[in-house]
Design a protein around this nucleic acid. Structure first.
Lengths: 224, 224
DNA sequence: AACTTTCGATACACCGGTGTATCCAATACA
DNA sequence: TGTATTGGATACACCGGTGTATCGAAAGTT
């Protein structure tokens, strides 16, 4: 243990490593989404990242470890995305509303929702991965608490956004924000799920359309 | 192919067979629910049914075939249960309402929902199995259409029940019955899921409580 | 430019699950 | 009761995935 080399040693050593870790994680994310954790083999993952299994085992101990790492990374990305779309809403809201302080017309609600969803630049990959995680979470308590934590975080974030949006638009709901958020995301997800099952190539489009109409219908009922 | 033996031959031969098939299916249902399709091995299933793998392969070709058979059986059972609870509702409604034609008091809505849920005598086994099916359905189009079909059937059934119940109780919703049913079951399932993740031993209780309060809150908003 | 270290590739031993071919017992039939 | 048939058990060959031990090349150090 030399105390002299105070800064440089690790960062450089890690530079390459970190890159391959990233590549492996990206590959794993795809593979997991496509075929599920169980069907996914270490080989598939390595291969898709243009590595061999050797590289994998040099970087991760087990498939499961990688999966959990992935879950965390994904959640962070998602949270970031949510926060970011707050700003976007601030930009787009005035345009939709017209005069400041005006109340939202029902026919414009669709625009609002659509714009929000677009921000989330939907890859249904994420949803498939999430479904995998969810299933795991119901069987393994350790995974379960991770999942619940993530979900809670995402929903509080989302609840804030909604409250703000509703306020800005002159609406309010009798449900408390968290419950409202919960119902909406739940509906959102189940709709996306349906789209995935129906959709061959144009999942994206189907999903988008389905989700929009459903959510608008719901919000119309729940907020006034 | 003898045309003479018109009746007896098959039924007897099948008697034993059918029984072991049943036992295998019951066992499989449990195993699938507990560890998932992929982690489940033919051996586990056979063993739990007190057979060896020999018996399994004598009755089914693959694990997947069994799984699908199970999905169908389960769905039928569930539909039957739904239909049956209509009758039960007819019995219990007058008691809750008091005077015939009276409007439901909000504080009694909980009773109604609870009673309905009790009818479904929830084993969260079914939900876990269903989750497994759902995940499969998102990846395999063949399974997908089966799932969607089943889901549609269950939801129409449920929609009818709800409409009838609301009418009987002097409420109505602006959402169409199917959408209402969809939102409610979705919320129901996501809540049950949460309970499973939180719950150690008393999943049942937690689930029940959670579901009831959540659903009541929702219905209060959606139907008036 | 030699050396050293780090990281990924290659090769191999191992294990668990599958599916099949064969055998034995119970039941059906005469 | 003897014979035929059916259904489940046993044994085995096979395969795919895992994880480890070894090696070689490229980057980092002096």
């Amino acid at each position: 243990m030399s105390i002299t080399t105070s800064e440089a040693p690790k960062p450089t050593e890690s530079a390459r490593r970190q890159k391959t870790r990233e590549r492996l994680m990206d590959a794993a994310f795809e593979v997991f989404s496509e075929v599920g954790i169980h069907a996914a083999t270490v080989e598939m993952i390595a291969e898709r990242a243009d590595f061999t299994r050797g590289a994998f085992y040099s970087n991760f101990d087990t498939k499961e470890e990688l999966f959990l790492a992935l879950a965390e990374r994904g959640n962070n990305q998602r949270l970031a995305l949510l926060r970011q779309s707050v700003e976007h809403m601030d930009q787009i809201l005035p345009e939709i509303l017209g005069a400041p302080g005006a109340k939202l017309q029902p026919e414009n609600l669709g625009l609002l929702v659509t714009s929000f969803l677009d921000q989330q630049n939907e890859n249904s990959y994420w949803f498939l991965f999430q479904s995998e995680l969810r299933l795991l979470a119901m069987r393994d308590p350790a995974v379960g608490s991770i999942y619940l934590e993530q979900k809670a975080a995402a929903e509080t974030e989302f609840a804030n956004i909604i409250s703000a949006a509703l306020r800005a638009v002159g609406l309010s709901s009798e449900l408390n924000p968290l419950e409202l958020a919960s119902v909406l995301t739940t509906t959102y997800e189940s709709t996306l799920q349906e789209a995935i099952m129906q959709g061959g190539p144009q999942v994206q489009k189907i999903a988008h359309e389905l989700v929009r109409t459903k959510l608008v219908a719901l919000i119309t009922q729940l907020a006034r």
